[in-house]
């Protein structure tokens, strides 16, 4: 459905995107993670035909954003990170204008508009002025606008930014509905951990380069490298610490909050981990629990982008 090939965008000597390659199947929800200025919005702007790449190309449903932008626009619904609305235009007039802008006939627009407003829970705001809506409502209206021509692909740049928790939940529910409709959704967000459960694939971008791509679990497994193990100790805390310090696969050992817990980074495999536990039991270490510290997507993102920065 989406094929990005060697996509590069340069502004003078600054490279915003550096030979980005990405292939996405139809119907998936793709989360794009990256810090500010990493290249997410540039990628989305190129896909939305608002920017042309310096080199490379991107195909959406087989149509090139460089040579067939008019065709691409029919396939996509775009929601920018920052957008404004027209003053003195009512909600239904706003949608009617964009519907007409996509060449939808007046009779069809009359049917479509109430359906879209229902989808984004704005039916009761149909005759209100757009500029008087709250930020969350404007975001939902903008999403309805992006859907008016029934695009196959939705490109949503930070759709939840600036929203309060309730509005975020509402937005997430709408995106779930859209996913169930079979739309291919590209979404970038700073709150990706919150959205991770609905993303089929994640791409991590840093300094214009795609540094990881896959499903959430794969990325975590691929990129975590070292595990953080937490061991609960009944007594003889310092003796247990000395025991673990002797293992060559253990580093960054700490006593957590001066309680009966020891945490350390472990480089070994699962088999090595079994052997270590066995060794500890044979050495009569008073351990009553051993667990792997859960890392959420944000931690993974922070650690891998830190790694990319230092390269």
């Amino acid at each position: 459905m989406i094929e990005i090939r060697e996509l590069t965008k340069k502004y003078g000597s600054f490279t915003a995107l550096d030979q980005l390659n990405l292939s996405l199947e139809e119907g998936i929800v793709f989360g794009f993670v990256g810090s500010n200025g990493a290249g997410k919005s540039t990628t989305f702007s190129i896909l939305a035909t608002l920017l042309s790449p310096t080199s490379g190309d991107a195909l959406i449903n087989g149509k090139s954003v460089v040579t067939e932008p008019e065709e691409v626009r029919k396939q996509i619904g775009y929601m920018p990170d920052f957008f404004g609305v027209y003053d003195q235009l009512k909600v239904d007039e706003y949608l009617d204008f964009y519907g007409a802008s996509y060449g939808i006939r007046a009779a069809e627009r009359k049917v479509l508009i109430p359906q879209l407003l229902e989808l984004v829970n704005l039916t009761n705001k149909r005759y209100d002025y757009v500029d008087l809506l709250s930020r969350g409502m404007k975001q939902r209206l903008c999403l309805a606008r992006a859907l008016i021509h029934d695009p196959k692909v939705l490109i949503l740049d930070e759709p939840a930014s600036g929203l309060d928790p309730r509005a975020r939940v509402e937005m997430r529910d709408i995106l779930r509905d859209l996913k169930s409709m079979g739309k291919t959704i590209l979404i970038s967000s700073h709150i990706l951990p919150e959205l991770a459960e609905m993303c089929d694939e994640i791409g991590v971008i840093d300094n214009g380069k795609l540094i990881a791509h896959g499903n959430v679990a794969t990325i975590q497994a691929q990129l975590q490298g070292e595990k953080r193990i937490v061991v609960k100790v009944a007594e003889r805390l310092h003796e247990v610490r000395t025991f673990f310090e002797e293992d060559s696969m253990i580093s960054a050992i700490d006593i957590v909050d001066n309680r009966s817990e020891i945490a350390f980074n472990y480089r070994g495999t699962e088999a090595d981990q079994v052997a270590l536990l066995k060794k500890a039991m044979l050495a009569d270490m008073p351990i009553y629990a051993l667990s792997e510290e859960e890392k959420d997507l944000e931690d993974v993102f922070m650690s891998i982008t830190k790694g990319a920065d230092s390269q």
């Binding site: 939305a48 608002l50 029919k74 775009y78 920052f82 957008f83 964009y98 802008s101 996509y102 606008r145």
Partner: peptide
């Protein structure tokens, strides 16, 4: 300036 242009340019209007 009102940040409405990008949305307008992604429609199929020429």
């Amino acid at each position: 300036e009102k940040q409405t242009l990008n949305i307008l340019l992604t429609t199929t209007q020429s």
